[in-house]
Simulated assay, not measured.
Amino acid sequence: MRVRFDHVSVSLGGREVLHDVELEIHPGRFLGLVGPNGSGKSTLLRTLYRAVAPSSGRVLLDERDVWRTDRRTVARTVSVMTQETSTEFDLTVLDVVLLARVPFQRGFGRDTDADLDLAWSALERVGAADVADRPVGRLSGGQRQRVMLARALAADAPVLVLDEPTNHLDIAFQLELMRIATDLDRTIIAALHDLNLAATHCDDIAVLDAGRLVATGTPTEALTPRVVEDVFGVAVDQLTHPRTGRPVLVFDHPPQTRQDPTDRRDEINA
């Protein structure tokens, strides 16, 4: 399914946090959304799953406007892994994952065998089946991230949104999560902090800076040294991974703040 942000702007508290974002994600592509903290990544994602309404512009699933579509239909079409985990009711892991199936049920319908199969399959896929009966509130941050990913997978929706999915995860599961995502036959949009994770696993990259889209394209095209330095304030060399052919970014202080080694020696000898 195609996703398109059609000149989307968002104002919150009288301040414009997104400005005229025009971005298209083609069916089956994995797009990494990157940018500094406060650049608008999560806000843009929230316009897609009807958590934040655009001040202007449209968010389209194929040619259907998300904000002219009922919530239930959107929930069946877009599954979401957010950073927040509610433990108010101290639900078990399995119950939390089964919440993904609620939009597909009628009224107060019971979980079907198909719902349970999808939930268990998702838990096994993320390596969390062994904690299925534990209260979510008693899990570590990394375990909760696994559960939130399982819930998003259990929805079995054609569009998957991942909002900073690698937070609280050790490097092994960060790589595993990205591998799981790349193996899915879905349209995926992920807000990511780690530029190398994005460059290694995503088909396309979109770079936001202060609410504006400043670069799009393949990882090689979008994460050029000039873009990275301008947006993130660091110097970077873009290398090529010897095995995968993917870009690898090596960071340093920007040129204007690098200290001449001879200056450092002078300080030591003073």
Rank of each mutant, 00 (worst) to 15 (best):
M1F: 13
V3R: 08
F5A: 08
V21T: 06
V21M: 00
L23Y: 09
F30S: 01
S42K: 07
A51Q: 01
A53H: 12
S56H: 02
S56D: 05
L61N: 00
D62N: 10
D62T: 14
R68N: 08
D70L: 12
R72Q: 14
V74G: 05
T77E: 08
M81T: 00
T87D: 13
D90R: 11
L98K: 13
L99A: 04
R101N: 13
R101F: 03
G109K: 14
D111K: 07
D115I: 08
W120Y: 04
V126M: 08
G127S: 14
A132N: 01
V136C: 07
R138N: 14
R138Q: 15
G142E: 08
G142V: 15
G142P: 03
R144E: 03
L153I: 15
L153Y: 14
A154V: 04
A157S: 09
A157H: 13
L160Y: 05
L160M: 08
V161F: 00
V161K: 10
L162C: 02
L162Q: 04
Q174K: 09
E176K: 03
L177F: 15
M178Y: 04
A181Q: 13
T187I: 07
I188L: 10
I188F: 02
A191E: 09
L192W: 04
H193T: 08
H193S: 14
L195C: 07
L197K: 03
A198E: 13
A198N: 00
T200E: 13
D203C: 10
D204F: 14
I205M: 04
A206D: 01
A206Y: 11
G211M: 11
E221V: 11
E221D: 06
A222E: 13
P225G: 06
V227A: 03
T240N: 08
R243A: 03
R246Y: 07
P247R: 07
L249V: 00
D252F: 06
D260G: 10
P261Q: 11
D263T: 15
E267D: 09
I268A: 00
